[in-house]
């Protein structure tokens, strides 16, 4: 997994690529929590280049969302590949996370 934080229209956007699994999830959590501790009001995450996410990756985002909700923050996903979308749907998390088609949809929300 590779994780970078880009700035788009003045906002921080998390860009992910590769596999998010038991090995890489602790690193993802570290980055995510560092941003959330600063109480960012919204955090868009680009899944466009994510090839695989396992339950540890999903749990990491659930934990992140739980923390953001405590101060009214929003965790926003976009560019989710169909295979990953199917897993989110199966675990009913497609109705828990805010999911958008692309970055423009996130900014328009």
């Amino acid at each position: 997994m590779n994780i970078t934080v880009a700035v788009y229209r003045g906002k921080k956007v998390v860009e992910l690529s590769g596999d998010i699994d038991m090995y890489s999830s602790p690193e993802l959590r570290e980055h995510l929590m560092a941003l959330i501790r600063r109480k960012v009001p919204s955090l868009p995450v680009n899944f466009g280049n994510v090839s695989y996410i396992d339950s540890s990756g999903i749990a990491t985002f659930v934990e992140g969302l739980k923390c953001m909700k405590s101060y009214g923050g929003r965790l926003q996903f976009f560019g989710i590949p169909e295979g990953i979308m199917e897993i989110l749907r199966f675990s009913k998390l497609d109705r828990v996370f805010e999911i958008y088609g692309n970055i423009e949809d996130v900014f328009d929300s």
Binding site: M22, Y23, S25, P26, R29, S55, S56, I58, A59, T60, V62, E63, S91
Partner: peptide, 17 residues
Amino acid sequence: EHTKLKDSTIQIMVRMK
């Protein structure tokens, strides 16, 4: 036993399973 995940993450994973 096999990962370096934080227990807070593990507890969410267990509830998912």
